[in-house]
């Protein structure tokens, strides 16, 4: 499914340009959920932006493919249509564009790029209502402009709402647990778990173990200085929690 091979990427422009990803290799097979953990500045968010094609985050060598398709050659919207979804660490406000309008425009844009029919209005509304109920998002919230005036927790729930509406082939969750209280964390995790399936992969980027109590990963990778320094099963997350990054990183070094 997602395959990163020796990926190197720079961030910034001119003199401020820095190499953040430094020979990162990683494979997430279909049907699996992998977690990426690492200290601040390890390159976790950079990885999510490089994979989604944000301007200013440029892969300089190596490859990134989704089911064999070269992601790095595609525009951000083409990557979305190919099935990449990013749940943002800091979801952005879209003033004046109601959630329902936005999500429908996005779904239809993806479908158009893939050469598929648009989603019908009744189908869309029905689906939005069902998913909204699961995530405790009321109809009123879906009429408001995207993220405008939303609390931190509402924003994160809306990210998961969008993910469930779009049913991406591969989801990247960047610090989705930050800003969530225990109940919201459970709601969000339930949403993510509901999407686990044989043909979908996920990459869960997080600082802490607590999200992984709710979303059990198949593999855990430790990212430091722009590459994966250690990989293991779910027990690695627990070890990190106990020993801290210093312990693990010291062991590696």
């Amino acid at each position: 499914m997602l395959k990163l091979d020796n990926l190197t990427a720079d961030v910034g422009e001119g003199d401020g340009r820095k190499t953040i990803l430094n020979g990162l290799s990683l494979e997430v097979p279909a049907g699996e959920v992998h977690a990426i953990m690492g200290p601040n500045g390890a390159g976790k968010s950079t990885l999510s932006y490089v994979l989604t094609g944000r301007e200013g985050y440029e892969a300089t060598s190596g490859t990134a493919t989704l089911n064999g398709e070269d992601l790095l050659e595609m525009e951000p919207d083409e990557r979305a249509a190919a099935g990449i979804f990013l749940s943002f660490q800091y979801p952005v406000e879209i003033p004046g564009v109601p959630v329902m309008t936005f999500v429908r425009a996005a779904i239809n844009a993806q479908r158009k790029t893939r050469g598929e029919e648009e989603i019908s209005a009744p189908d869309f509304i029905k689906k939005a209502r069902e998913i909204g109920q699961k995530l405790n998002i009321d109809a009123e919230m879906l009429k408001r402009p995207v993220n405008v005036g939303f609390s931190g927790g509402e924003k994160k729930r809306l990210e998961i709402f969008q993910m469930m509406m779009m049913e991406p082939r591969f989801a990247i969750l960047d610090e989705t647990d930050s800003g969530l209280d225990i109940d919201a964390l459970k709601t969000v995790a339930d949403g993510v778990n509901a999407l686990r399936s044989e043909d979908r992969g996920m990459l869960v980027i997080t600082h802490y173990q607590r999200l992984l109590d709710h979303i059990q990963p198949d593999r855990v990778h430790v990212l430091a200085k722009g590459r994966i320094v250690k990989s293991g099963g779910p027990e690695l997350a627990l070890q990190l929690e106990k020993e801290g990054y210093d312990g693990i990183l010291g062991e590696v070094a």
């Binding site: 944000r54 919207d77 979305a80 979804f85 996005a106 779904i107 844009a109």
Partner: peptide
């Protein structure tokens, strides 16, 4: 630009 990227990430061409 942040809003534009967010929208593109959801599949909407620039």
């Amino acid at each position: 630009e942040d809003a534009l990227f967010y929208m593109q990430q959801r599949g909407i061409p620039k």
